[in-house]
């Protein structure tokens, strides 16, 4: 049985800076990495592999250099890697992204039974957390988002039990296989790749699926299949570090100042 795992290659946005003068993003030297949430999703898949003997296939949609990220997944222990790359896949919003990813999953399902489709809670570039639900809905699989613990997989009954983390509470949910799970970062501590696997991954095959392979209608994918349009991008008002008031002599006043700032910027809410 398969665990299909989605990973996205993203720019390391924590290294992105905004040029204080021009207000544009400074991306120079910012490397591409495996989306941090997906590292945890992959880890969770690999743990399922260790525990239940599933095969783990990683898929990623992106430009050709996404291969680097897929190789990292292979080094960590994934069994196979598939790159979904085509000019016509480009510029996709979450709707058009989930279209391609769901179709690719269907293709895999034709050959081998799928136990679980795993993805990260969200990415650090698009930040939407919408692709997971999108894939699940398209496949008609139950979706288990915000999972921080996979309690167990019952292979006999074909069920998976997970713990979901919501605001102020946990939820224990049981769902039939196959289900889609989106993983929180706190779910696990990712492993470190062993060297023999790293060496193996350096030249392991990564399958390429372009639209010739996928055969999808162009108005459902990529830019054309996207329902949202990003009209404008601008840099947010940045709060640079500032020292407030005179905390040493007027603590009460300074504390007020801080609270007002936090309220004004919606950082805290005292409703």
């Amino acid at each position: 049985m398969l665990v299909v795992t989605f990973v996205k290659q993203v720019p390391d946005t924590t290294q992105v800076k905004v040029d204080p003068v021009t207000g544009t993003l400074v991306r120079e030297g910012v490397p591409f990495i495996m989306n941090p949430f997906d590292v945890h999703a992959l880890e969770e898949s690999l743990r399922l592999k260790d525990k239940y003997g599933f095969r783990v296939i990683v898929l990623s949609m992106g430009p050709p250099n996404t291969e680097v990220t897929l190789r990292k997944a292979l080094a960590l222990g994934a069994d196979e890697a598939i790159l979904l790359s085509d000019r016509v896949f480009g510029g996709a919003d979450t709707l058009a992204t989930s279209a391609v990813l769901a179709e690719a999953t269907k293709k895999l399902a034709q050959k081998e039974e799928i136990a679980i489709v795993m993805c990260g809670k969200q990415t650090i570039d698009g930040d939407t957390a919408q692709v997971g639900p999108g894939i699940a809905t398209r496949l008609g699989y139950p979706q288990l988002t915000l999972v921080d613990l996979i309690v167990n997989v019952d292979l006999q009954a074909k069920k998976v039990k997970v713990r979901r983390r919501l605001e102020g509470r946990y939820e224990i949910v049981e769902s039939p296989l196959p289900s889609l799970i989106s993983i929180l970062r706190r779910a696990n501590r990712p492993r470190y790749p062993v060297v023999p696997r790293r060496l193996m991954a350096q030249d392991a095959p990564v399958e390429l699926w372009n639209n010739k392979v996928m055969g999808l209608k162009e108005d459902t994918i990529g830019l054309k299949g996207s329902a949202t349009q990003v009209r404008k991008i601008f840099s947010p008002e940045r709060t640079k570090g500032e020292i407030l008031g005179d905390g040493a002599n007027k603590p009460e006043e300074t504390a007020k100042l801080l609270i007002d700032k936090l309220l004004a910027k919606n950082i805290i809410c005292l409703k």
Binding site: Q15, K17, G29, P31, I33, R189, Y192
Partner: peptide, 26 residues
């Protein structure tokens, strides 16, 4: 890949950003 857990971020920081704390290289 067996080592004290504190070393995991250390190894990854060094590998990704070439410093122990994962601070932006710039």
């Amino acid at each position: 890949a067996k080592f004290p857990t504190e070393l995991l971020p250390f190894f990854e920081n060094i590998e990704q950003r070439s410093n122990p704390w994962g601070i932006v290289p710039s």
